[in-house]
């Protein structure tokens, strides 16, 4: 039988995949993808807790996370397009021009 801990473990695994992506990636677009992976992992955990505790609050928070993710993508992609027009690259090492 599938319990709450199964879902939480899957969610933790997916979250750590996203975290590895955030730490590893140097391309800004790929960094965005890794962020989406992390947000989805949290959504799974929320939906699972909502189901096993018979409570709707988790699903509500998942909805707001989806709304936040949508606006994050809208603004972030706009910034990426501006950056690409200005520098011709999305690599973080190329964009880092403040060296202390």
């Amino acid at each position: 039988m599938i319990g709450l801990s199964h879902y939480l473990i899957v969610s933790a695994i997916i979250f750590s995949i996203g975290l590895v992506g955030v730490l590893r990636r140097r391309n800004l677009l790929m960094l965005f993808f890794a962020t989406e992976v992390m947000l989805n992992a949290v959504n799974i955990a929320f939906a699972a807790i909502s189901y096993y505790y018979n409570d709707l609050t988790g699903q509500m928070f998942a909805f707001f996370i989806i709304a936040v993710a949508a606006s994050e993508v809208a603004v972030g992609l706009g910034i990426l397009i501006v950056l690409y027009k200005k520098y011709g690259s999305l690599d973080l090492d190329d964009l880092a021009n403040m060296r202390g």
Partner: peptide, 9 residues
Amino acid sequence: AMIAGIILA
């Protein structure tokens, strides 16, 4: 966010 995306892109 929609307005920001339109203005930026």
